[in-house]
């Protein structure tokens, strides 16, 4: 299992419930394939940076999931087949996340060490003043 992000853009003229239908369909593919959905984010209508099949704006939808490669492949196939979906992008994020966690841990540790050192110093000072 690996973590992925699938982002896709949908024709701006599709109705809200139709977008929900697409989402539930993708959800179904992921859960039936043994994957877990971490997040579904509707990023709303945005202006596109360039024209995609004659559209200047589109709905952005982001899925974050943990699944096998087969599941992702199936999702991509479904997205390709669906008419209102203009474009999709799948990114594998676990390596990046691991790196970020490592950096975060490191920063926290450093901050903790520094603040504990500072605390000790201030305690010393306070002691000195008391005497």
């Amino acid at each position: 299992m690996a973590n992925y992000e699938i982002m896709f853009i949908v024709n701006p003229n599709t109705a809200e419930d139709e977008i929900d239908k697409i989402n539930t369909q993708i959800e179904g593919v992921i859960t039936s394939g043994g994957g877990q959905i971490q997040k579904i984010e509707k990023m709303g209508k945005r202006r596109l940076a360039y024209e995609v099949s004659r559209f200047r704006e589109a709905f952005y939808i982001l899925f974050a999931l943990a699944a096998n490669g087969d599941v992702v492949r199936e999702c991509e196939r479904r997205l390709r087949v669906m008419d209102p979906v203009l474009k999709y992008l799948t990114v594998r994020v676990d390596e990046e996340n691991r790196r970020l966690d490592k950096m975060k841990n490191y920063r926290q540790k450093r901050a903790a060490r520094r603040s504990s050192g500072a605390a000790a110093a201030t305690a010393d000072q306070a002691g000195g003043e008391a005497i």
Partner: peptide, 10 residues
């Protein structure tokens, strides 16, 4: 990546 999903222009 951002370009390929039309967040940024080519």
């Amino acid at each position: 990546k951002a370009r390929s999903i039309a967040l940024l222009p080519f």
